[in-house]
Design a protein around this nucleic acid. Sequence first.
RNA 1: GGGCGGUUAGCUCAGUUGGUAGAGCAACUCGUUUACACCGAGUAGGUCACAAGUUCGAGUCUUGUACCGCCCACCA
Length: 892
Amino acid sequence: MSALNLPTRFDYATIEQKWTKIWDDHAYFHPQVEPHKKPFSIAFPPPNVTGILHMGHAANISVQDALVRGKRMQGYNTLWTVGADHAGIGTQVMVERQLKSEGTSRQALGREKFLERTWQWKADYEARIHGQMKHLGASGDFRRARFTMDEGYSRAIRKVFVEWYNAGIIYRDNRLVNWDPASQTVLSDLEVESKEEDGHLWHIRYPLSEDPNTFITVATTRPETLVGDMAVAVHPEDERYQHLIGKTVDLPLTDRKIPIVGDAEVADPAFGSGAVKITPAHDFNDWECGQRNGLEILQVIDLNACMNVNAPVKYQGLKVNAARKAIVEDLEAGGFLVKVEDHVYLPGRSERTGAIVQPLPLVQWWVDMKRLAGPARDAVREGRIRYVPERFTDEGVEWLEKDIRDWCISRQLWWGHQIPVWYDASGEIAYVGVDDPDPEDAKNWTRDEDVLDTWFSSALWPFATLGWPDETAELKHFYPTSVLSTARDILKLWVARMNFSSHYFLNTVPFEQVLVHATILTHDGKRMSKSKGTGIDPLEMSQRYGVDACRFWLSEVSMSGQSARFSEEKLQNGQHFVTKIWNACRFMLMNLEDFDPQTPIDLDKATLVDQWILSRLHGLEKAVSQSLTDFSFPQAIKQLYTFIWNDFCDWYLEMAKPRLQGSDRAHVQAILFHCMDTMLRLMHPFMPFVSEELWSEGLQKIDPNLGTRFGAETPAQHLTVAAWPTVPAEFAHAEAEAQMESLMDIVRVLRNLRAEMGVPANKLAEEAFLRTDDTALRTLLADNSLVFEALAKIKTIHVASDIPTPEQAAHGVSQNVQITLPLAGLVDVEKERERLQREIVKLEKDIQGLQQRLGNPRFVERAPESVVKEAQEQLHELNFQKQTLEQRVEAL
RNA sequence: GGGCGGUUAGCUCAGUUGGUAGAGCAACUCGUUUACACCGAGUAGGUCACAAGUUCGAGUCUUGUACCGCCCACCA
């Protein structure tokens, strides 16, 4: 590419495709295990194959890819494992929905056909997901991509099951579970969401058996469960009811008598009537109350959320809602209904199907959490796993510390890992094993039909992806992984589970740091939701603004610790930034065609401006390098932006233009070359495509040995595998930065004078006077007169301690420099006077503030000397400025 | 009911150890200067939600209040 015929815009669509392919062809992201190198590894949270990726994924990809690219450049043996999750219930629900739209169903197809169909679905979505990731520039190892139902992965699952079963950690038991009638499966507590909903509280009276004219009134939000009541509970110390404990009531609408029991846990005298109906088969509290009081369990609701044969005949077969209506009517007719109140309650709903979850007693498989939680909790509490931001630590570990409930892992689904348990003819467990039993033995056995909770397999992700249970070289080298980056909503569901699984089987943490990235919200601050159509497709956005623009924004906001509102303006800004970089580099390339890349930067020849930009570059490198360690992406990105756009383009390049025409050319070229190289390397983790294109196709044409710079171990052909830059400490120059700052301020005053006086910015002003008594400063100003000439567009700058003041002139002041811009014929005396007066008023306000502060004896006495001194100097300067302007007003 | 965030310019957000507030977008005024009009220069705009406290000094620390958001919790 020749810089001269480069377009003024960055053709991102073509170039993104081009580099995706080249990187892939070189297998840059498929690392070999290199034991002598330090490892850096991340296991990408496997997206569910339920659909395509959304903005949240794009955010997570941006963050992880930035880290991985940075570390790769820094010479780490870097592995980013990618893959996909079978997402049991989620995928099954999606496929079933598809079948329904085709007029068929899972049941009609049968298990085998249904699974075939689901594998097809998986293949389709997995390909689309990987395609999206590559499109976004994810430098993941797709050659090592894993799927949670791969052969090897499945073996890992079975091994975990069998080991935990043998250790007694996995067991089978009949208990109350969360039943999702829509998907016909059990759910874990964590898959049930409860949100407040409007409902009612029905007050019902139960007549005492010994005296049907006396009643005890209970309140309930679920009157249909009345027919499953096994007791009424009251607080044992409740004086209203104490005497009734041990007696019975006639349960309305049935012919059963149920006891009144005393139970301090479940009955709160202050709530409602103080008496509670107890339905052990359909309520978690009541279940426990039943256990405490030796109550029988009577299940009256079946798997379809209908009343079953244990309910009075009249209600049998009715859906729960219909039964509720019928029962309430009958209660009212029988005189049992006291009143109905509006009431906000918390029904549990399946996070997948949205159906109201029915608590039911069922035999299921469980994991004994108390046996696993300890080491995982300790790892977090002892800081061996660090959460970033830190405040998420509690959210991640509290669940493991508190009264944790056992984890129900069996699911009545078809899509998933079938439980490796076989039963004999009598229903007893005959075999549990990693490998299928010998067909001869298994002749009369049947396999457990249930599959495992999808999170059971996700829990093994960081190590199963590396080949566990085999002792692979990858596992040895890359485990534990370095960082886990995730959304906050699965800290318990997933992150905590990886933690305890890893501790049990590998006796170590699964990752050293947990990065919790921001949630991307809609423009108006709502959660993005596919069903509401507020979800935003990252591909659409990247097609509109380019991947680099999107990633630049996402990397910034995703690590800000705050949730971020999506805004297209920000992406547009990102795109403009990319264009700016593109054009700045285009300009440099145009001016570097005759550059000898052997030319070193000669600090002896460096002017103030050179010293300044190199010092700024030094600061930039420090900030960006730092961000790869402490995840301070927002700061790094802001600095990249202001360095490139403001410092480098607006000031340095403008200054460079005239110098490139003179004897200084080679020296300036060396600095441009070095800055461009460093800038491109530093921005590559965040904007991989544009940086790669400019580096490989532009800069490398000028220096074929570019890839050996910065101590590269092996010469790099492309930026993606080039070395991370370091800016020498001797480039840091605080004094130059401060001095340049004062020059820039004078330039701003000059520009301001021109603008106020209506001198067009493109017209060269003849001359300007800078007057100051500070001799050192005078030298500085004189030495750098080019700065004013180039940036304030002044032909000649006069620096002196005393200069005659022209009649027609505009006046300004900066620090202790009096600035005069002669403008014969352009000055409206009245207007100039007003302008100066305005300036003076402003100064007076600041002066007053300073005087007040310095006038306070306690300030002078107690504040640090440097602060007091600074204030005094500032006051002095402001007074000088005020005086100067006042003199001008008088002169007018 | 407990816990955690947030409240800063019209909008979206920065603000590192307390030293007197910044960016992007939008607005307004100039400008077709050979890298870029997806540009350049300039202007305007904020009692940092409210109240009290600590301090010479608070956007920054403490306490309380209000509103918004999230997480947890078996109040029937």
